[in-house]
Amino acid sequence: MGSPLGDFVRAKRDSVQPQSLGMPDWGRRRAPGLRRSDLAARAGVSVEYLTRLEQGRDRNPSIAVVNALADALALDPPERDHLRYLSKITGGECTAHTRSAPPRREVRPSVLRTLGLLEPGIAVVTNRLGDVLARTGGFEAVTRGTGLLDADTPHLDAGMPNLTRYVFTDPRARAFFADWDEVADERAFELWHGPSAASFEWFTAELAPTAGPEFTGRLNRHVVPRREPWRLRHPSGCELELIRETLELPEDAQQLVVFLPADEATARAVDRLGGRSPGRLRAV
Rank of each mutant, 00 (worst) to 15 (best):
A208P: 10
G217V: 09
P195G: 07
R187D: 01
W180A: 04
A211D: 04
A175C: 09
W202F: 15
D179C: 05
R174T: 06
A184C: 02
F203V: 05
F215E: 07
F215Y: 10
N220T: 14
A208Y: 07
A188P: 01
L191A: 08
T216C: 12
S196I: 11
T204K: 04
S199G: 09
R218C: 05
E190Q: 11
A208L: 12
W202N: 14
R218H: 15
R174Q: 07
D179E: 05
A173L: 00
F215N: 05
T210K: 15
A208D: 12
T216R: 04
E214R: 11
A188V: 04
A178C: 04
R187F: 06
F176C: 01
A184F: 00
D185G: 05
F176I: 00
V183H: 02
P209R: 08
F200P: 00
E206Q: 12
N220V: 12
S196H: 07
H193A: 14
W192N: 06
E182W: 03
A178Y: 03
G194I: 01
F200M: 12
F189Q: 09
A205C: 13
E190I: 05
F177A: 03
G217P: 13
D179Q: 05
L219C: 10
T204V: 14
A184S: 03
N220S: 13
E214L: 15
P213K: 09
E206H: 15
F177R: 02
A188E: 11
S199P: 09
F189D: 04
L191V: 14
F189M: 08
F176G: 00
G194A: 12
A197G: 14
A184L: 01
A175S: 07
N220G: 15
P209G: 09
W192L: 13
R218N: 10
E206N: 14
G194C: 06
A188K: 10
E186L: 08
E214D: 14
F203Y: 14
G217N: 12
A184I: 01
E190C: 11
T204Q: 10
P195L: 10
A211T: 04
L219N: 06
F215P: 02
A205E: 14
H193Y: 04
R174Y: 01
F203I: 05
P195N: 11
D181Y: 09
R218P: 05
S199V: 03
T210Q: 15
N220K: 15
F189S: 05
T216I: 08
G212L: 05
V183G: 06
W180E: 02
G212Q: 07
D185Y: 02
A205I: 14
V183K: 03
A205W: 12
S199Y: 03
G212T: 06
A198K: 12
A184D: 02
P195E: 12
A205S: 15
A173P: 08
G194W: 00
F176E: 02
L191G: 11
T216G: 13
F200H: 10
G217A: 04
E182M: 02
H193F: 10
A184R: 00
L207P: 05
A198T: 09
S196Q: 13
G217Y: 14
S196M: 13
A178S: 02
